[in-house]
């Protein structure tokens, strides 16, 4: 895939959403469904890998960029990830406290809620590619439960899942 196209598609995903993971449905629609340069397991892997690293959750885009186009792709994805952040300078300069206006809050709130619904929908095909039996159901369920009911860091969930997978197959 052309690097400019990769950058623009990822920028579209980051510019139209309001949190790191909200861009996932758009990324899936463009890269998995439309252009077919990424598979659902690779997208799930990108999410998992980003949770094993420090930094913002949106870093899964870097893994997507690397999978699609190697190091140049990872670079383009990093630029796409950070580009919208600089809009806050415009907000600080020209809007200031007006950006806390109830209408701005309502629009942000509505888009965030819709993003939550879209993520839930995008989850279904990802689950079909990653859940293949009772063991993976238990791991996914436990992960969901721990992450919603406790404040434990995600990296521990990833490590615990890896340890459970190794224990099930027998250590190397």
């Amino acid at each position: 895939m052309n690097l400019l196209v990769l950058y623009l598609l990822l920028l579209k995903a980051t510019l139209t959403t309001f949190s790191g993971m909200s861009s996932l449905p758009l990324v899936r629609a463009d890269f998995v469904v439309r252009h077919k340069v990424l598979t659902d397991p690779q997208l799930s892997r990108a999410v998992a890998v980003s949770r094993m690293a420090p930094g913002p959750n949106g870093l899964y885009l870097v893994s997507v960029g690397y999978t699609v186009a190697g190091l140049p792709g990872a670079t383009a994805a990093t630029v796409a990830l950070v580009t919208p952040a600089f809009l806050i300078i415009v907000f600080l300069k020209f809007l200031g406290r007006n950006a806390e206006h109830p209408v701005a809050q309502r629009v942000t709130q509505a888009v965030t809620l819709a993003s939550g619904g879209l993520i839930a929908t995008a989850l279904l095909p990802l689950a079909r590619s990653s859940i293949d039996g009772p063991f993976s159901v238990v791991v996914a369920g436990a992960s969901l439960l721990v992450l919603t009911a406790t404040s434990i860091d995600t990296v521990w969930v990833v490590l615990a899942a890896a340890a459970a997978g190794l224990a099930r197959k027998g250590l190397p």
Binding site: S143, V157, V158
Partner: peptide, 25 residues
């Protein structure tokens, strides 16, 4: 062994994405 650990991590990622949707809503 990478497959075994990776498969479980991918399953956990499904839980992470579901948690992300829930925590957003």
């Amino acid at each position: 062994w990478v497959k075994a650990a990776g498969g479980a991590i991918m399953a956990a990622a499904v839980g992470m994405i579901a948690a992300s949707a829930w925590l957003l809503i």
